[in-house]
Amino acid sequence: MDSLISADFWQLTVNGLVRGSFYAALGAGLALVLGVTHRFHFAYALTYTFAPYAAFLAMDRQGIPFWPAALVGLAGAVVLSVLIELLVYRPVAARAGDRAMLAVLVTSIGVSTAGIAALQLIAGSTGLPFYGPTMTIHEWGPVQLSNFELYEVLTCVGLVVAIAAFLAFTPLGRQVKAVRSNPGLAGLLGIGVTRVSVTVFAIAGLVSGACALWYGLLYTVEPVMGDKVVIYGFVVAFLAGTRTSPLRALPVGLGVGLLEQWSSMWVSVQWTQTAVFTVLVVYLVVLSGRGRWRRSVVPRPAPRARLKKA
């Protein structure tokens, strides 16, 4: 009995790490969007869902093999993400002025729901048979791990590290950081703010697409697959901080993944999601009590320039 529990424990731990790296990558992508553009990018769920759908349609309707089709899906998610920023968020935020956050959130939910409905009109409302390479299961002692899970972890951790390296070591990455810390000043210094936001949305699209393709191979591709994922992404993004290194998403994402899996030892599986939200609520209650985050997260608009008489 004892060994059974411990066997479960190790399997759950591995599952938690697999899930956690997935959440970490999604969170890092969202945190970048939130930190740099202040857009509540709910349509992350759409770019996430779009990638496997596009890949499926490429395979199913055009007869393209899996890997090129996956690339099509990935590229589709990137392009869609950038288009949403350029054609929807940007004009909406410009019109909304100081209420941009609400306006963008609402339109984002609208775009996401409408986009997913459109996908259903094209590909049907049921789950898709999304198959690619063959899955093999490896066993290490009590623990089972599929090659897909392994690749997913590598992809996700690789993406987070790549984003961090991009921000730290490339000129464009440094421009992204500059806009993140002070968009107004960065604009004055000649940094193209549009180029920066296109870059972060492209990265977000890439991350969501890559994660969704692996998820699709592991589980199912269905219209509602993005709903829960995007919220977990937000949770990780906020817990890790939206204006810090993406590497911080790794421990937070892994923590959320482990919490979710471990909690299934004590409560029924359906309650694991609730365990994660309980942690989030506790965090928010603490935050609410301190109530000092308003300025540290979204800087107040600068006071009107004062024209002092000499």
Partner: peptide, 27 residues
């Protein structure tokens, strides 16, 4: 909870709450 929260945390909380409520019902 919303009292001391900045706008984006309020949004986050209500998003998570929406999903959690439905999740709890389904449990």
């Amino acid at each position: 909870i919303a009292l001391g929260l900045a706008e984006e945390f309020l949004i986050l909380m209500t998003l998570a709450f929406s999903l959690a409520v439905i999740g709890i019902f389904a449990t």
